[in-house]
Nucleic acid binder design. Structure first.
Length: 860
RNA sequence: GCCCGGAUGGUGAAAUCGGCAGACACAGCGGACUUAAAAUCCGCAGGGAGCAAUCCCAUGGGGGUUCAAGUCCCCCUCCGGGCACCA
């Protein structure tokens, strides 16, 4: 007891005696930050000749809103812990950061405050970079990428030209979201519940517009098949991408249109897409989308029909706008016309229906009510015939007739079914029939096997100002209607900076004559520049390659450098990017590979998606008023405690409930470590061999902790348990404090424990670790010091505590030497007085001994 | 409707391969130090019964497999996310 008060002895300096120092992040953190900010080499990646294995650790780049939020803090705390850990494990680490700096908020801010987008964006970047530095993230700022600067976006333009050359960029007319109030096109993300994000009361319309597209569908199969190889990606993300690509195998079949009068066949035909061509003998109608060319043709001939079709189209549009397509009530109208089923020559009625989508498949289907739920519902409503053409294998065997008719329709066969009433294909299995009938259609010239995708080509045109100008021009003289690519040497096509974007109608760039007027690359005459800009997802599709060679002015990057660093070893970000960004960037990588720029097929080997930061049960957001500012946390508890809490409160893949008391707890923990480290800092400088009588418990706990944390980094990343094991180590130190004061722990052991402790804290609390490392007299930079290595011998417990159960209920715990064999453990269990009392007078039926785990006695 | 997550004390969570449920924290309670408070340190703590030894109940609910289930199997409820007439 007296040891505690007398503990400040000859090891402590006078200064410590007079004014015991307390943990003060407000002093420690700025001190180290200043040193780190001034040293560009600190986090610089080395070249391929470093002699070390490379490790590319990447976090998703943020949009520079101007403020770091807790989601960022958590995302980057994970990446930073990993990067620092890998440095300590001897890797050559690339850990970059950049800015996804184009996009509408900048234009919005300009409208609201009159600040030019560029100025607004760059000042936001400066503010956020400062916050990141204050957080102590280990980014190599020499490789910083800012997508809104010409030295970056010129390569977007360069890629666009390459894609145009290869036929991967093309123009076509397509539907876009149009806000009649803004007089401009909106991206899908800006349509909320069918309404404009800026005008809550304005319903967004669909308009036809000529747009630029990138041919991502060319890679649809490769993007799909590649998912199998991405074992380091979360299954959830792979499933989402699989669904998004939506590959479906089927067939196109042509139905010739006949007039309602009968015999005079017209050249009109309807091509339907079906995945179940084997059910075609059950087709009792053909259904068209309201916008199908044939629907339109019929509408022209029949005013009454036209009105009805327009109504169907209205219903569909409305449903689409309110995101309720799935809930639309099925309506349809008979056109009075018929089509011929090419397989049996039968005439079936042609209908137009509101549930048929013009932009999937061919916009026309054959309706088989007996074997499709939707067709069945429609047929029931309009009294169309239902004709069964497939049956389960069992019920054909049990002979024809009644059992078969008991079957509930629609019958949706999987594989075990055969065709009935299907002409020459009757009796064939469904799977075989699908193949044979598609092949038959092809041979006869009225169809073909087809693969359809849900994935569509990527529309990249945006009628906005703050984005990459599309490097194309139009010359009425030498290529009317056909766009011409600008010469590579003309790049970058600069975004004009003095621009009035307060007007909202049309493309802002179209109102800048200096921009629009261009020289035709072919004839040298007057030409018009394309005034659309690129989707910002273009920027983020390849930014991580630019990090490997950020200053290159002759190419997007040097292939050797990219090939050294790629693929990304670990990509970390939010699951909200599971589809768009992560599929576009996979596509871009494949295009670059085919251009010979890189060798890898996929950008990232492993992907980690962290959970959201929650407060009071809801996602932090301005509208909910539950935002916790990182700045405030830093002010109160410091950056180290803030980051460490974000790793401690939950496993990184789970949602995290922000509780300020928890941050305070981490801060208290760091204070405790600070006090102990300062107190023993002189002792802990000792070198030599550990020989003290009380060394063992401490060293054992140290090595158990090393083993645990090393394992966490290599495996599950459950840093919450890593940090808790460090706390256990510190508790062990506290429990041994008196022994340490009394000199019962050798200085060498004290040194080993404290050095190990601080090294293990370095990935989680870098400022703190740097300060403590200095206090311990550690040499060099703490997070470049080798990660401690486990000594299995020291980590091992001398005795094992083996729980003993009787009939599965815990009775006692016996101590046996570690590694005891079954007989020893059993003997120890049976010798225990509590066990003896419990089994007295009963028969031991069975003894289960799991060495090192437990003993269970089954008694009667 | 379909596909993924998830549900464990007052709270965040732990239990990684079927083997002592609640580690580590937060909040709480009791104590020490202090004139006092803060800070710090020590201790208690799933629920219920009992003076106690001890017993009973407990991982969203119900069944099952097993010597043994938070963990595996079947059914159900609730919460979160994604997709949704994709032919």
């Amino acid at each position: 007891m007296s040891g505690k008060t007398a503990s400040i002895d000859e090891n402590s300096s006078a200064a410590e005696l007079n004014q015991p120092q307390r943990y003060s992040p407000a002093e420690i953190e700025p001190k180290w930050q200043a040193l780190w900010d001034a040293d560009a080499s600190l986090y610089a990646a080395e070249g391929h000749d470093s002699g070390k294995p490379k490790y590319y650790c990447l976090e998703m780049l943020p949009y520079p809103s101007g403020k770091l939020h807790m989601g960022h803090v958590r995302n980057y705390a994970i990446g930073d812990a990993l990067a620092r850990h890998m440095w300590m494990r001897g890797f050559n680490v690339l850990h970059p950061m950049g800015w996804d700096a184009f996009g509408l908020p900048a234009e919005n801010a300009a409208l609201k405050n009159g600040v030019p987008p560029r100025e607004w964006t760059l000042s936001n970047i400066a503010a956020m970079r400062k916050q990141m530095q204050r957080m102590g993230y280990s980014y190599d700022w020499a490789t910083e990428v800012t997508t809104c600067l010409p030295d970056y976006y010129r390569w977007n333009q360069w890629f666009f030209l390459k894609m145009f050359e290869k036929g991967l960029a093309y123009r076509k007319k397509s539907k876009v979201n149009w806000c009649p109030d803004c007089q401009t096109v909106l991206a899908n993300e800006q349509v909320i519940g069918g309404r404009c994000w800026r005008h809550e009361d304005t319903v967004v319309e669909q308009r036809d517009l000529t747009q630029w597209f990138l041919r991502i569908t060319k890679y649809a199969d490769e993007l799909l098949d590649g998912l199998e190889k991405l074992q380091g990606w979360p299954e959830k993300v792979r499933t989402m991408q699989r669904n998004w690509i939506g590959r479906s195998e089927g067939a196109h079949v042509d139905f010739a249109v006949v007039s309602s009068q009968g015999s005079d066949a017209t050249p009109l035909k309807i091509t339907v897409f079906t995945t179940r061509v084997d059910t075609i003998f059950g087709a009792t109608s053909v259904q068209l989308a309201p916008e199908h060319a044939v629907s339109k043709a019929f509408a022209l001939e029949d005013d009454a029909l036209r009105v009805q079709i327009e109504e169907l189209l209205e219903q569909q549009k409305k449903a689409r706008e309110t995101d309720a397509l799935g809930a639309i009530e099925k309506h349809g109208v008979f056109t009075g016309r018929f089509a011929v089923n090419p397989f049996n020559g039968e005439r079936v009625p042609i209908w137009v229906a509101n549930y048929i989508l013009a932009d999937y498949g061919t916009g026309a289907i054959m309706s088989v009510p007996a074997h499709d739920e939707r067709d069945f519902e429609f047929a029931q409503k309009y009294g169309l015939p239902v004709r069964r053409v497939i049956a389960p294998v069992v019920d054909t065997k049990s002979a024809a007739g009644s059992d078969a008719n008991d079957l509930v329709l629609p019958y949706l066969a999987e594989k075990e079914a055969v065709l009935i009433d299907s002409g020459e294909w009757t009796g064939l299995g469904c799977v075989a029939a699908q193949e044979e009938m598609a092949a038959f259609a092809k041979a006869k010239g009225f169809g073909t096997p087809t693969v359809t995708y849900r994935l569509k080509d990527w529309g990249v045109s945006r009628q906005r100002y703050w984005g990459t100008p599309i490097p194309m021009v139009y010359c009425d003289k030498c290529s009317p209607g056909e766009p011409l690519p600008v010469a590579e040497s003309e790049l970058p096509i600069l975004l004009p900076e003095q621009i009035d974007i307060t007007q909202t109608n049309g493309s802002p760039l179209g109102r800048v004559p200096e921009f629009v007027n261009a020289k035709c690359p072919k004839c040298g005459g007057v030409a018009r520049r394309e005034t659309d800009t690129m989707d910002t997802f273009v920027d983020s599709s390849w930014y991580f390659y630019r990090y490997t060679d950020a200053k290159n002015s002759a190419a997007p990057f040097d292939s050797d450098k990219a090939n050294y660093w790629f693929p990304i070893d670990q990509y970390i970000g939010g699951v909200e990017h599971a589809i768009l960004h992560l599929i576009y960037s996979r596509f871009w990588t494949k295009v670059m590979r085919d251009l010979g720029l890189v060798k890898n097929d996929e950008p990232a080997e492993r992907l980690f998606t962290q959970g959201m930061v929650i407060k009071d049960g809801a996602k932090m957001s301005k509208s909910k008023g539950n935002v916790v500012s990182p700045d405030l946390m830093i002010e109160r508890y410091g950056a180290d405690a803030t980051r460490m809490y974000s790793l401690f409160a939950a496993p990184p893949d789970r949602d995290l409930e922000w509780q300020e008391e928890g941050v305070a707890g981490i801060s208290r923990f760091l204070s405790k470590v600070y006090r102990l480290t300062m107190k023993f800092s002189s002792v802990a400088r000792a070198k030599g061999v550990a020989t003290g009588p009380k060394d063992q418990a401490l060293l054992r706990r140290l090595h158990q902790t090393i083993a645990k944390i090393t394992q966490d980094f290599d495996g599950r990343w459950h840093f919450n348990t890593s940090i808790s094991s460090i706390m256990i180590l510190v508790n062990e130190i506290t429990a041994n404090e008196a022994a340490m004061d009394a000199g019962e722990v050798s200085p060498a052991a004290v040194a080993e424990v404290f050095r190990g402790l601080i090294l293990m804290l370095a990935p989680f609390a870098p400022f703190f670790a740097a300060e403590m490392w200095e206090q311990l007299g550690g040499e060099g930079v703490v997070f470049r010091t080798a990660w401690p290595v486990v000594d299995e011998e020291l980590a091992r417990e001398a005795e094992a505590e083996i729980p003993v159960q009787v009939n599965g209920k815990l009775v006692t715990v016996v101590k046996v030497p570690v590694g005891s064999d079954e007989a020893t453990v059993k003997a120890a269990a049976l010798a225990d007085p509590k066990v003896i009392a419990r089994i007295e007078g009963k028969m031991v039926v069975k003894v289960i001994v799991v060495p090192g785990k437990l003993v269970n006695l089954v008694v009667k």
